[in-house]
Design a binder for these strands. Structure first.
Lengths: 247, 247
DNA sequence: GAGTGGTCTAGACCACACG
DNA sequence: GTGTGGTCTAGACCACTCT
């Protein structure tokens, strides 16, 4: 006896390691606790550091661990549920929304965004940058693309800059009647700028939420929201329960 | 000058590689086209294979590439939008739903699921397994947990097995009045079983959708749906547009 | 400066698909 | 059998954080 190798196809080491570590996290570690460093863990399990890291990477992807260079690997708290419910039909920047305006610039939108802006294509576009906080931590960044044609009140000479200007754009947007919202979620990897704001490395996995704001039969604005995939669970409806993936 | 190194902090090789490859995919390759193999690509760019693979991994995560052992690396088609809209309030298995019932077993639900089943905790639970197809390919698997108490019509002796039994459970479920749905989306990694059905390796990134079906003031059923993160974009509302992450 | 995770190398062998 | 991606090793050095 003394063998656990009953599978027809042997499991890769890193996957077995992942299982072992996962169970250890459940039983032997508390949230926030710091794990032994990678070199010691690798030695303890008798594998190369690269193999250990493969297991740690997946556990981090699943939100079980948090790794920070120069600091160490800690046990992550359960994911926070962030509401992205489109039920309450309101514009971004409406009273009570969870976002904080950080800046605004006038740019040409990315080609893919320009396509969905439809009728508004060609004119200048405001890019409003916002951040969403939860429990004192940035969980998402957003760039809201608003064609100048959607906010005619902004057409005058603008002396305001940065956040104030962004808030002005949102104010103007809120004057329109919102026809509806369309939303999509997909997996992406954080661009350098977003990664910095989210305190992650570039390329970190993120959940990208694309929202089209409809008004007067057209697309009045498009938002690209980038949520930390390791720490966030996006909720729709009034789902207030906890993650079912915890164990 | 002949130098492109203007950054204060040099970019890691794999990240630069990713950018270069990404641009090459846009301009020099067609969807479905097969790339040179990893050993040749690594040689061509003058890096170790492991470094090249780090770039390929992220591109696959973003849905730009598809890698298959024994076959090669191909350029992935744009992600398919799959509707997970909770607006049409209906039970799983209602006419017109996109899922195909594959089997059914009676099990104890995972601890985390049992917790959200609330009032029904303790009794036997049906686990109905379903698959969602799109364009002839499995894009998602689902396990629907239905407490026996939710489907009293099933309490008799059951001679049916597998898919037929699963359909019977769904039929019974559809007799109840649906009070509402609550939904959450988060990143996970495919368990071995799901990975097999989705034609992916275990650990592949997936979007996990948790749905609670409410009836008579309680949770009548809970579904855990696992979507391929590389090929799927989950849409809410009537969002029929294409991905904005394409470029 | 010491210790951490992040990047990188140059190999090796394995599992799988296909002809 | 041949070629592909998947796993694994044993090192090395770098970037970052904390003291």
């Amino acid at each position: 006896m003394g063998t656990t190798r009953l599978e027809t196809v042997p499991e890769p080491k890193y996957r077995h390691l992942k299982t072992v570590l996962s169970e250890a996290l459940d039983s032997e570690f508390a949230v926030g606790e710091i794990l032994p460093n990678e070199r010691e863990l690798a030695a303890r399990f008798g594998v190369a550091r690269a193999t250990l890291r493969q297991a740690l990477e997946q556990l981090e992807l699943e939100g079980r661990l948090q790794r920070r260079r120069g600091v160490g690997t800690t046990v992550a708290p359960p994911r926070v549920g962030v509401d992205v419910n489109p039920v309450r039909h309101s514009w971004p920047g409406a009273p009570g929304d969870a976002w904080q305006t950080e800046g605004c610039e006038e740019t040409a939108p990315p080609a893919a965004v320009a396509g969905t802006l439809g009728a508004y294509t060609g004119g200048p576009v405001y890019a409003v940058h916002r951040v969403r906080m939860a429990h004192g931590q940035a969980v998402a960044t957003e760039t809201l693309y608003v064609p100048a044609a959607s906010v005619p009140g902004m057409s005058g000479i603008e002396t305001e800059a940065g956040a104030a200007r962004g808030r002005a754009v949102l104010r103007e947007l809120n004057r329109l009647e919102l026809g509806g919202q369309e939303r999509a979620v997909e997996l992406g990897s954080a661009r350098a700028e977003d990664a910095r704001r989210l305190d992650r490395l570039p390329g970190a996995p993120v959940l990208v939420v694309t929202t089209r704001y409809l008004a007067a039969g057209g697309t009045a604005a498009v938002a690209l929201s980038t949520y930390r995939a390791d720490t966030c669970r996006l909720t729709f409806g009034d789902f207030a329960g906890v993650s079912l993936l915890a164990s």
